[in-house]
């Protein structure tokens, strides 16, 4: 490090190596990423956005929504649950005895508490959770046992973690979710909720518009700023606008006026409704629940 050239070379090697690692390599690995295939299906993912939603992504960018909202769900892990869906020829009491007989076996010992609790007050209602949170191996073993006993069962894979418990998504976000985004706005701060799945969570366009116009009318104590500049307050003409936002009384405009979203607001909502990261993928598997869980 006696000469300028020496310093130059050392610095260039240091930065160059990280450039190769974090710029070149990801571009080679992911730059040509193609559509993913939905697990157990021939459908591809993600679907192309509509024109309005694509423009809405630019509204999202221009207003810096990503300053407070992330679009990435985290998960702690994946687990299996085994559901009893049919008893076959067995009676509930017999099945309880069958479960009792499993308890002393060494492989079920660490599940014994769960199994005892699950079937303590069970009266035969189906479907019934046999194992709630277990690994693939135990789930398969249990499914085999149930099959041998003449019962029907179903094994479901699900992701768990606080984000998922909050209802922000059904699985973690993966690279495939962002294939069509430009710019990709993952966000780095959760001053507001995660939006990776907002199109599923809050699918009502009018509620979305109402939330943009007056956030506190939808979520009390929200710290989200209102985006009234995306709306127009105007006198109701001969016929009210079909687009007018319905608002609770304390947020409604003066009598004889209506709140009509500008194009930007409609596009932004179209974008928000297009955020639906709810299909299982190879790298983020889960079993979709067809009927809502009780």
């Amino acid at each position: 490090m006696k000469t300028g050239l020496g310093v130059f070379i050392v610095a260039a090697v240091a930065l160059g190596s990280s450039w190769c690692g974090f710029v070149l390599a990801p571009t080679l690995q992911l730059g040509g990423a193609k559509l993913a295939t939905v697990l157990n299906s021939t459908d591809t993912y993600p679907t192309q956005r509509t024109g309005d939603a694509t423009l809405g992504l630019q509204i999202y960018r221009a207003n810096g929504c990503a300053a407070c909202h992330t679009e990435q769900v985290r998960q702690d892990g994946v687990a299996c649950e085994v559901l009893l869906t049919g008893l076959g020829k067995n009676q509930p009491e017999e099945f309880k005895k069958f479960v009792q007989s499993l308890l002393p076996l060494p492989e079920w010992q660490h599940h014994s508490k769960e199994l005892t609790a699950a079937f303590k007050d069970w009266n035969g209602t189906l479907p019934q959770v046999v194992l709630g949170k277990t690994d693939k191996e135990s789930a398969d073993k249990m499914a085999d046992l149930l099959k041998a006993a003449g019962c029907k069962s179903e094994t479901r894979i699900y992701a768990f973690g606080t984000d998922i418990a909050r209802g922000w998504g059904v699985r973690r976000s993966v690279a495939a979710d962002f294939l069509y985004d430009n710019p990709v706005q993952l966000g780095s701060l959760r001053a507001g909720p995660d939006l990776a799945n907002i199109g599923v969570r809050l699918a009502d366009a009018n509620v979305q518009l109402q939330h943009l116009y007056a956030p506190q009318s939808v979520a009390k104590n929200s710290t989200m700023p209102a985006f009234r500049y995306l709306f127009e307050i105007r006198k109701i003409g001969s016929t009210p606008s079909p687009d007018a936002v319905t608002l609770p009384k304390e947020f409604a405009p003066a009598a004889g006026c209506e709140v009509v979203p500008k194009t930007e607001a409609k596009q932004l909502v179209a974008y928000l409704l297009s955020l639906r990261a709810n299909v299982p993928l190879y790298e983020a598997p889960f079993t979709p629940v067809i009927s809502a869980k009780p």
Partner: peptide, 11 residues
């Protein structure tokens, strides 16, 4: 394309 954007952004 895709998540290469945030990777380069973080770098």
């Amino acid at each position: 394309r895709g998540v290469v954007q945030p990777i380069i952004g973080w770098w």
